[in-house]
Design a protein around this nucleic acid. Structure first.
Lengths: 411, 411
DNA sequence: TAATTTGTTTCAGAGGTTGACTTAACTGCG
DNA sequence: CGCAGTTAAGTCAACCTCTGAAACAAATTA
């Protein structure tokens, strides 16, 4: 007999009963284990951390152990005398998340486990950006990734595809100029052809810049509370995390913020968009290059030109940095972030950009005097979007393991 | 004997026990009554709306009645045959919120009750913007408002002051150029000199544009999920509500977003700020006027010039609309809102601005094709900030009445 | 062996649910 | 006017599940 699935009350919208109370405290406990991450945490430490009593913690831990979401590590450091505490840490088997991404030069797929560790990362070159060509390839990569995961006792419980453009309803890519897509329901197409084990696997679609921000957030230990991750791969997007939560809706089209009122007209129909100054192809074009030297990756092409000492590329980078600074200043005036990560391909070019951006921020941001803003390269760089996509999928279990518990108990 | 105060679990950060369960379900029930607002709701309707059973609802309703947070309205329409349901609605006595605002021409104070109705609204002209002059006046107005409230059996449980500039820690006004303030701890100064009944009354400080957005949101029945309210009084600020929640931090300095790369330099140190084109004094200056005709209110001055058919003011308004459109387009590209309210003094000038703003939004907003944006004047206009401030104070009780319950039970 | 800390077992208390019964109040029909 | 039908609301008991408190068992150090 399967127990009913109870949602934990995140908002005040649903009534809570005795059993949802249990579900809530289980989530609370599990998140403490997730937060402890590298250093296993004991039952009694959980008790003090959560405020629940030891018996309650013991019961909850029993459930988590039975569902194989956590494992008992060998006796950990006790610190003082007395019975040594038993360390608990996240299982490296069980639920996993799958991420897919379409990048400038390759398609990529990624599997992460509960701990957030990347267990599988796969790149495949491609030609032709037509949905009918690209999506089946991605589906094949997904199948391969799910198999590879199963070989390591991982069950893919969710999948997300990163798309370079605004996405509606976690499924429909509204506009992706670099792929030539318009109103493509990538989620439906992929979900049809991919399954995990016996169950169908719904594949969500998200904006690449926002997923990259999520990936960088995890990679930084979730320490930052308010930050923006500016990604330049195809387009320029901004992923915003405010107060530890990601912004919903169409948020983040930084590339189409105006930075010059007398600028050239953009593909979007407006004039003076950031993209026309700080997009990678725009930077190359400003230096009279077409970017054929990078093996398909414009960032590498720029990097080699800089190494070769081409003065025109330095000018173009300076102009790009100024434009980025203006756009980010507008953003920071509106939504108050304290950290700006240069992600995607910009992470490779960060050393040529940081100074120019900082200069504009100092000039233009009203709060810069009493609330300094840190600009730095993002650690994951171009891989952030796939990894973030995979994390966003497994994160649903990390945020609320009750679904997984019900699934395990039902078999 | 007083029962301990239990917080309701809004996030998953605290454990929930049996009694916090009760507190949670009480909040849930109370919010349903708040949401029903004008049409009294019965116990059995509450039961179906919340998912709690009738016995539980009855108990909770008894508690709320005993605390005088709600009242039994006379037998309401039953709809069909049978015993008519007893309508429950918010009490118009009990907790109240106090709002204070410094406006271009007057100081204002406002008291709202639980239902959100304005019960007291008071304006006092002033001269001299020095904190040592203005703050005591505001404190005196607060005292008068608290007295007036007490006469109607209202207890002021919270107070908020609206300040024209960025505010830190709900207390310190960092920068208010139009008042000449810098790093003024208005919250501390006011809290010292104001008390409600026997208890001290802490006075919070918030940004005026954001409080105005809150006020307009309530005035519109909280129907909009994602909207921005652009307020022009002194400065230009933007109050953002996303997914029904207000953005934290320094959010909303729309006035200092760049709209012309070759523009004049602004007081903030940057160039081409929106404020230099769409600020009320900027509009008047562009038409070669100094705004002495409006009795202190620049919006009225502009309005009279328009009525007089001055062609220069029409040009200035057109330019202001274009600038506003550019800035708002940048905002909408970044944070995805579906409604733009023209608040504060702009509500009076909306008919001269809407078309120009819409034109720029159509050109510049990427998502405008599939997610239309509505631009319209805000109903409350210049009063929105005081009212919003008062609402934000009483809203703490509306969001979680347990504090008030504990207070009532303890006496 | 005593002390200490950790984890487990047992039991009582609190709260909500279910279900049935009762009281209350209105509608509609004869 | 009076009665049945209908719906709303209060009340009571039995039951379930959760947490907390206290006692108990286990494992290590001194």
């Amino acid at each position: 007999m399967t127990k009913p699935v109870h949602r934990v009350a995140p908002h005040v919208d649903i009534p809570i009963r005795q059993d949802s109370l249990r579900a809530h405290n289980l989530v609370l406990t599990f998140r403490q284990i997730v937060a402890a991450q590298d250093t296993p945490i004991s039952r009694s430490e959980l008790s003090t951390a959560t405020g629940l009593t030891r018996p309650t913690i013991s019961r909850i831990v029993d459930d988590l152990l039975a569902a194989e979401l956590i494992i008992e590590a060998g006796p950990a450091r006790s610190g003082s005398s007395g019975r040594p505490r038993v360390g608990l840490s996240l299982a490296r088997t069980g639920p996993a998340g799958l991420g897919l991404d379409i990048r400038a030069d390759v398609l990529s797929a990624c599997v992460v486990d509960l701990t957030g560790a990347v267990r599988h990362l796969d790149f495949v070159p491609y030609d032709g950006t037509d949905p009918a060509t690209v999506l089946p390839r991605l589906a094949a990569m997904a199948d391969r990734a799910i198999e590879a995961a199963a070989a390591e006792h991982l069950t893919v419980v969710g999948a997300t595809m990163a798309a370079p453009g605004p996405v509606q309803d976690n499924s429909i890519v509204r506009f992706a100029p670099t792929l030539g897509w318009r109103d493509v329901d990538a989620g439906a197409a992929l979900s049809e052809s991919v399954s995990s084990g016996s169950a169908a696997l719904p594949i969500l679609v998200g904006n690449d810049a926002r997923l990259a921000a999520l990936g960088e957030w995890y990679a930084s230990g979730q320490a930052m509370r308010n930050f923006v991750c500016v990604s330049g791969e195809f387009d320029i997007g901004a992923g915003l995390l405010l107060n530890g939560a990601q912004l919903g809706g169409w948020a983040g089209e930084l590339g189409h913020v105006m930075v010059r009122s007398d600028g050239p007209s953009c593909a979007c129909g407006a004039v003076g968009c950031l993209q026309c100054y700080a997009g990678l192809t725009a930077i190359l074009a400003a230096a009279n290059h077409d970017g054929r030297d990078g093996g398909g990756s414009p960032a590498v092409a720029i990097d080699t030109l800089v190494s070769a000492g081409d003065p025109r590329i330095l000018d173009a980078l300076d102009e790009a940095a100024t434009a980025l600074g203006i756009a980010v200043a507008g953003l920071v005036n509106l939504v108050s972030v304290d950290t700006v990560l240069l992600g995607g391909s910009y992470s490779l070019l960060a050393s040529w950009l940081v100074d120019g951006i900082n200069r504009e921020l100092r000039r233009r941001v009203l709060s810069a005097n009493w609330a300094p803003i840190e600009v730095r390269p993002a650690p994951l760089g171009p891989d952030a979007a796939v990894i973030g996509a995979a994390l966003s999928a497994v994160d649903r279990v990390r945020e609320d393991p009750n679904g997984w518990l019900a699934r395990v108990q039902s078999r």
